[in-house]
Amino acid sequence: MADRPRTRPAPPTETTIDSADWDSRDLSGETYRRVAFVDVDMTEAFGRGADFSECHFRGVRFNASIHTDAAFVNCAFTRCTFFDTTFTACKLVGSVFDGCTFDLLKVDGGDWSYTSLAGADLRRATFDGVRMREADLGGARCAGATLRGLDLSGAWFHNADLSRCDLRGSDLSSVNVQTVTLAGAVIDPYQAVTIAAGLGFDVRGDIERAGRRPRAPR
């Protein structure tokens, strides 16, 4: 099977905000469309309901910022830092991340469907209860990450490293165990059945034999 294309062009922008100091800025209710943010410092920025549409963030520092009910739809993030950043109930549908860092990123709820996180280092990130339908996680490094309760239907995982990852409650129906690393990943019993079925096992319940030990050979 051919690899899914991982790159999408950044959206065209009409205005530019360059090298601005938005440290601790309250972004509540602010709206931006087709704006290029270049080397902007958004450290400890915060707010509820900010709306960024088709924007391009280049070299932006989102460190320790807190975003609630915000939208970053069809945006591109290039070489941005998300150290200890929190997204709560945010919408990032169709956004692309390239060359970004995500240490201690926390995502709680929201919709990240169709996002591209191809090749991203998410080893110290936490995603909980997020909708990520058809997201591109090809080649993503998620060893030891927390990816719990995610809707990952149709997501792309080719060559992703999910070893030691907490995947409990997530939809793993699109995970091809032959093309990802899963050693030590934590899953629940329902997911174990789904993966076994994906490997071609005929999973059945046998009440009569349940719990019996194998007979010792005579």
Rank of each mutant, 00 (worst) to 15 (best):
D3P: 04
P5L: 06
R6T: 13
R6S: 14
T7P: 00
T7H: 07
R8Q: 14
T13A: 02
T15Y: 04
T15C: 03
T16K: 07
I17K: 06
I17E: 06
D18R: 10
S19E: 12
D21G: 09
D21M: 08
W22L: 15
W22C: 15
D26F: 08
D26E: 10
D26A: 06
S28L: 11
S28W: 02
G29V: 10
Y32K: 06
R34S: 14
D39H: 13
D39K: 13
V40S: 04
M42G: 03
T43D: 09
F46D: 08
R48C: 00
G49K: 07
A50V: 09
F52T: 01
F52R: 07
S53V: 10
E54M: 02
E54D: 03
H56V: 08
F57T: 00
G59C: 06
G59Q: 05
R61L: 02
F62H: 07
N63Y: 00
T68K: 10
D69M: 06
D69C: 04
A70K: 04
V73W: 09
N74G: 02
C75M: 03
C75R: 01
F77R: 01
F77N: 07
T78L: 14
T78N: 10
R79S: 11
R79Q: 10
C80M: 14
D84L: 11
T85S: 12
T85F: 09
T85W: 12
T86R: 15
T86M: 13
F87N: 01
T88F: 11
A89V: 08
A89D: 10
C90D: 14
L92C: 13
L92E: 01
V93S: 05
V96A: 03
D98G: 00
C100W: 04
C100P: 01
T101R: 15
F102I: 06
L104K: 15
D108K: 10
S113D: 07
A118S: 14
G119E: 09
A120Q: 01
A120I: 06
L122R: 08
L122V: 11
L122Y: 04
R123K: 12
T126R: 15
G129M: 08
R131P: 00
M132F: 01
R133H: 03
E134S: 15
D136W: 09
D136P: 00
G138K: 02
G139D: 11
R141I: 05
R141G: 07
C142E: 05
A143S: 14
A143W: 00
G144S: 07
T146H: 06
L147V: 02
L147H: 04
G149N: 11
L152I: 01
G154P: 10
G154W: 14
W156Y: 13
F157Q: 01
A160W: 04
S163Y: 07
L167K: 07
S170N: 05
L172Q: 01
S174Y: 05
S174P: 08
V175N: 04
N176R: 08
N176V: 00
Q178E: 15
T179S: 14
T181W: 03
L182W: 09
A183K: 14
G184L: 07
G184Q: 05
A185G: 04
V186K: 13
D188M: 05
Q191L: 11
A192C: 02
A192V: 02
V193T: 15
G198S: 08
F201K: 14
R204N: 05
A210R: 15
G211K: 06
G211C: 04
R212K: 12
P217V: 09
